[in-house]
Design a protein around this nucleic acid. Structure first.
Lengths: 232, 232
DNA sequence: GCAAAAGTGTTTGGATTACACCCATGC
DNA sequence: GCATGGGTGTAATCCAAACACTTTTGC
């Protein structure tokens, strides 16, 4: 065996994680971004991300980085794709892995911290020039999200805890980029365990809608005992 | 901003790729493995994988590594998951990314080279103790493959160029781990563009089956013009 | 003729679609 | 009363599952 470089020289890479946080509000999916207060790309908007410590597990690092930059904690992060073009980072070979989470925007309070100067939510379909290859990362990860929304009950992480069926429908219309028939949508979600809270929407100038909640316990039961699988 | 270690010390990682090569034969999916001729894990079976050069793109590196270790070339490699437990490699922090490919076993001739002492095909459901965390990588990647088989016409990469409908059915039965009805299977694949070659199977002691070929050109057309999407 | 697998047709029930209609609320 | 969205029913159609049946080959 003969490497073109010395073995030790292979240990010259760095590894970072970028945390794409998706939130939903008024029919649109948003992503949480930070404005970088350090070089490279100082002053440019970016996905919150940073380097992994040498002894740190990836999932732990993702949580830590998100907290350090935005003070957002307690969210479930899922692994996404890896991005590793040799020139993607001006300071050296940095390979990055996207992690993503789905949150209720009203439940979290993102605050810029550490080297993040500012945080903001941006509608995912709004074009904005991001640092590094973050536009590519954001797009790919959003596509992954749309795929997952079809096969896993993660829409309830994005929706408010108490939601109307119309809100749920709008989320799917947005993610699939197509209009859905109301009556048919309701028939389609029949197998999904939802609790009708017998509570009404307030402050609307039309007939108030019923509020629902995802029945997570029942869902777990169904998966266990009747090998139910979520489909949309 | 204050890192717990000096910035330069972050550039102490290494990054590797593991190439999971899936092949199909007689109703079973196999993976190509190598026996390691170097430490760590000398003499142990492993997924062919190695370190990425500092200036190398990931996809290029995957092809190179596969060729170096097994002389297998010209296959399409797809990115899979990343594995990065801090202690997964005894010689330092090595984060790895699985790449996978689907091949026709009869088309390729894998030969051990470089620090690979031996190569062999192993049925994916056969338990064998592999080096590092390769058992986990292999399992996860196989699951990813099964998902992809449902939504992309990649089964034709695994099947012989000329295949019978029964061979195709068996591949899906294996990947979904369930028996399928022959008549229904044939109805289901009606929308998939296949060319009936009007050739018969040879040397079988029963009625010979027709041979088919995937009509890739027609498939591309359908995708372009009628936004067809492959489903199984 | 028999075994074995190839290959096709029919029936049935459940899901999907399109569309029409009624209901409750604010103003 | 009317605008607005909430909520439901029906008929037509498509699709998937179950199953039976015919065909072609080797021996």
């Amino acid at each position: 065996m003969a490497y073109k470089i010395k073995f030790d020289n292979f240990f010259s890479y760095s590894f970072s994680l970028d945390c794409v946080i998706f939130g939903y509000e008024k029919g649109e999916i948003h992503a949480l971004l930070i404005k970088r207060a350090i070089d490279p790309y100082m002053g440019v908007w970016a996905i919150p991300g940073d380097l992994v410590y040498p002894d740190e597990d990836l999932a732990d690092a993702a949580s830590r980085i998100l907290i350090e930059l935005t003070k957002v904690k307690g969210v479930t992060l899922h692994q996404g794709q890896t991005f590793g073009k040799p020139d993607r980072h001006p300071q050296g070979r940095v390979i990055t892995n996207a992690y993503f989470a789905l949150v209720r925007k009203e439940d979290i309070n993102a605050v810029a911290d550490s080297w993040a100067e500012e945080v903001k939510w941006v509608p995912i379909r709004e074009t904005l020039q991001l640092a590094f290859d973050h536009n590519e990362i954001l797009e790919s990860t959003f596509e992954l999200l749309c795929q997952k929304l079809k096969r896993e009950p993660i829409c309830f992480d994005l929706l408010p805890e108490k939601f109307t069926l119309n809100e749920m429908q709008q989320l799917y219309e947005y993610s699939q980029d197509s209009a859905l028939d109301k009556a048919n949508f309701r028939k389609k979600i029949k197998p999904i365990p939802l609790i009708n809270l017998d509570e009404k929407q307030k402050n609307v100038k039309h007939r108030p809608a019923n509020l629902f909640k995802f029945d997570f316990e029942r869902y777990s039961e169904l998966v266990e005992e009747e090998n139910y699988s979520f489909r949309m």
